[in-house]
């Protein structure tokens, strides 16, 4: 039995309202800014509040005797910052510079470093409730450097903790 014309329109309106309700953005929902990027062919995220700027890769000066966890140092408008070889720290294949490569300048407790990444894919606000703080499913060494996971473009992406990264280097 088919619905009457009135009933059909009522159902359509109800469905439309349901769709609209599903897509409503709660402006009061707490959000956090994340930078999504790729290293060694894998996606990762860092808190945007830790990122001061993102630069095209210029000349990196190597320093003899320095740990392989660093690519070297760079001159940023007269200041000299280390460049972290994050892919090596994460156990991925070594960093190879391409036109999409960037250096993200990270800051935590006043300590700055550049982080070499294959690409910066997006910087977006995500709802805090969507962060998953479980890291048990991640493999080492990523697990010990992550503070959670987050969904991005149909993938579950490890959210790295800059504090853990710094403590690994100290």
């Amino acid at each position: 039995m088919f619905p009457s014309s009135d009933e059909k329109y009522r159902n359509l309106i109800k469905e439309a309202q349901q769709l609209a309700d599903d897509n409503v953005v709660d402006v009061n929902e707490r959000q956090v800014q994340l930078m999504f990027f790729s290293v060694g062919g894998y996606p990762f995220a860092l808190h945007g509040s830790n990122i001061r700027e993102i630069l095209h890769i210029g000349q990196i000066t190597t320093i003899p005797g320095v740990s392989e966890l660093f690519l070297g140092v760079i001159n940023i408008r007269g200041e000299i910052d280390s460049v972290l070889h994050l892919s090596r720290l994460l156990g991925c294949k070594p960093f190879i510079q391409t036109p999409k490569s960037r250096i993200a300048i990270a800051v935590l407790d006043g300590i700055r470093t550049g982080i070499a990444v294959d690409s910066v894919d997006n910087i977006i606000d995500v709802a805090i409730r969507t962060l998953d703080h479980h890291v048990a499913s991640l493999n080492e060494p990523v697990r010990s450097l992550a503070c959670g996971q987050v969904s991005f473009e149909n993938q579950i992406v490890p959210l790295l903790d800059l504090k853990q990264i710094y403590s690994r280097l100290a």
Binding site: I63, G65, V66, V73, S82
Partner: peptide
Amino acid sequence: LRPFPPLMAREREAL
């Protein structure tokens, strides 16, 4: 003169 990058403290001390 600029400080040696703080994250490279191990190298600063050793070298």
